[in-house]
Design a protein around this nucleic acid. Structure first.
Ligand SMILES: [Mn+2]
Ligand SMILES: [Mn+2]
Ligand SMILES: [Zn+2]
Ligand SMILES: [Zn+2]
Lengths: 134, 134
DNA sequence: GTGTTAATGAGAATCATTATCGATTGTAGT
DNA sequence: ACTACAATCGATAATGATTCTCATTAACAC
């Protein structure tokens, strides 16, 4: 009488992580999220934060953003192909569902005999608020 | 009578590092470069490899490429603004001095009230050789 | 409820990168 | 060529992020 089921379980920790990401408009690293979760509620173990972020990312539920420092940050984004416009001061993230690279990418790939080409792009700058700090 | 000079010294190690980078068409991480240098010649200390790559990168002498894993790889590139087309199989790097993002970047920035916007983009795929491995 | 087993969490282990600091060495000056 | 000295090197310790271990907990199908 084996309980045969390998589906994903709805744990309290995962709910907390998703909730934290969902309410923010910026991306958080595992460390940052762990810290933030420690305060509120009952906290979530660091390993659990890493595990869930990693899983959710490969399931496509959230987006992984690689910071210039090399750390990975995560954000609950809308679906479909898009890029990010990130404020390098406050971290605010704007989703860009209007991708202007497809044509360029395709053309370059052909010119150099490359196949199965993927592209990755990101814009960084100062958002309206942070840019006001003249 | 102090020897007042803070210029960059021409050390044997730096020459070796530059030579190794210059002969390759792919990017190397500090670890990889250290390993490669260990075989040939008299080898260079790991810390020295890190120091010099870091320095050369911020001096603009070489390019730093952030891999998806988070490690930083370096390559001796041509000057001026450009992007990279990288084979995800063999690591070959093609410099793209034809940047097709300026317009898109500018427009997006204006639309969202961002200023001082920089863009970063990279194409990955299979080069002609690696794509032949049907 | 009970059983099965995915999920958790405290802490050890990895791995890349950085910091130490005494030993070298490039160089301007003589 | 000889000196003086700061820049550089290199062996190694330290850091920091991420992953692994494994005993304990808790979803959830029956
Ligand atoms: Mn996104
Ligand atoms: Mn380059
Ligand atoms: Zn901002
Ligand atoms: Zn290739």
């Amino acid at each position: 009488m084996p309980a045969h089921d390998q589906s994903t379980r709805r744990t309290e920790q995962r709910r907390a992580i998703l909730a934290a990401l969902g309410s923010a408009d910026r991306a958080f690293s595992a460390q940052e999220l762990h810290e933030r979760l420690r305060a509120t509620e009952h906290g979530v173990g660091l390993a659990t934060v890493y595990r869930n972020l990693g899983r959710m990312a490969e399931e496509g539920a959230i987006d992984a953003i690689l910071r210039p420092s090399g750390e990975t940050a995560y954000r609950a984004c809308g679906h479909g192909h898009h890029h990010h416009l990130i404020c390098r001061e406050c971290g605010r993230v704007v989703e860009l569902h209007d991708c202007g690279l497809s044509d360029w990418s395709r053309r370059i790939a052909a010119e150099h005999g490359f196949s199965e080409v993927e592209h990755q792009a990101e814009l960084t700058g100062l958002c309206a608020d942070c840019g006001a700090a003249a």
